[in-house]
Design a protein around this nucleic acid. Structure first.
Length: 344
DNA sequence: AAACCGGGGAA
DNA sequence: TTCCCAGGTTT
């Protein structure tokens, strides 16, 4: 039996029961695909349920304020996905009458939709034979065909895209695409693939040559950047201060306490004399104390060394929000963790 | 082509 | 600890 038939037969037996597999509505497929970018199914699933409940149609999502969308997205990471999602919802609702483009080529033009997502929506919703190539597909193909070309270099991207395009079932691309991804997630997993009970273990080159653990080949990336965030937690009666991150950096458009970023750790005296601190608190008397120990919040490419400094200013400060309202703002998990523990 | 963008879970 | 996840955008 050939590769594609084996994969789809396996899928029909072992596929997980997931909500976005009960529909071909491009809005639902789009929503699920954006959420699952670089995200495990188990992690994305509760967010998919929240979003489809809050926004049953693209018009509902388009009508929502950005802060509300970001709040629902809070904790899922890669927040540009949420901003692009919202932008594209408004475009589809207002410019396209709520109808998603129905081809790979047109879908690719939408913000937040790249090669993978355009292929996924085109195949699942519109039955177009556009091959998806995600991390699962790289793994399955590189192992089965014994291809050692690095998957995260331009040559590998092109090679595996073409290979997937040759293998795709042109009669049922929707099933094939989902099948090869599910197969990669469940059967041909990264660390401990179930080769002994694999329906493809006959023709698998990596298994034959004992190179399963060496494939797929990936080029090593950069090391971790360390950053030092010093947050000023204002305590003024029932008020505190939140600011929105506007610059092009992590957590864009999310909220946080007033921030002093430095090249390293700072002590109480450093904070007191810092320009940003003076700008916020002014020259009147104040009380300042550090809360807890420095927290190291780990992101993929950065380690954030975060310390929290509670400030009791003598005079009122600008930009205040009620402490009781802090939970309504979309914030990074780092801030959410602090708020949960600190309890104003 | 390479850098940047979150957070969590598995091994 | 390390790896990597239904990737996309920016530089």
């Amino acid at each position: 039996m050939n590769f594609s038939k084996t994969i789809t037969d396996w899928y029909r037996t072992y596929k997980r029961d997931l909500p976005w597999r009960k529909t071909t509505d491009p809005y639902c497929i789009w929503l699920s695909e954006i959420m699952l970018q670089q995200t495990r199914v188990e992690q994305g699933l509760p967010y998919y349920l929240k979003f489809t409940a809050a926004y049953p149609t693209v018009f509902d999502l388009a009508a929502a304020p950005e802060d509300e969308v970001l709040k629902l997205w809070q904790g899922l990471g890669y927040y540009s996905r949420a901003r692009n999602l919202h932008h594209t919802a408004r475009y589809v609702a207002e410019e396209l009458g709520g109808r998603f483009p129905s081809s790979y080529k047109e879908l690719l033009k939408l913000k937040g939709i790249g090669d993978y997502t355009a292929s996924a929506i085109a195949s699942i919703s519109f039955n177009e034979a556009a091959a998806v190539v995600d991390g699962n597909v790289y793994r399955v193909l590189s192992r089965y065909f014994g291809v050692a070309i690095p998957v995260n270099a331009s040559e590998g991207v092109k090679y595996f895209k073409e290979l997937a395009g040759e293998l795709i079932d042109r009669q049922d691309p929707a099933t094939f695409n989902q099948a090869i991804m599910e197969f990669g997630a469940i059967q041909c997993s990264p660390r401990a693939p179930k080769c002994h009970e694999c329906p493809l273990n006959d023709g698998c080159v990596a298994l034959r040559d004992d190179k399963v653990q060496q494939l797929p080949v990936k080029i090593r990336k950069n090391s971790i950047r360390h950053r030092y965030f010093h947050y000023l937690v204002i305590e003024h009666d029932e008020y505190t201060v939140l600011q929105q991150r506007k610059h092009k950096d992590i957590w864009q458009h999310l909220y946080e306490f007033p921030l002093i970023e430095a090249d390293g750790p700072l002590d109480k005296s450093d904070i007191e004399h810092h320009k940003e601190f003076r700008k916020l608190v002014g020259d009147s008397p104040f009380r300042l104390e550090q809360y807890g120990e420095t927290v190291i919040h780990k992101l993929s490419h950065q380690h954030i060394h975060a310390s929290f400094w509670v400030v009791y200013p003598g005079d009122p400060v600008n930009g205040t929000v009620r402490k009781s309202e802090v939970g309504a703002y979309p914030v990074p998990v780092l801030i959410a963790n602090f708020v949960r523990e600190y309890e104003f």
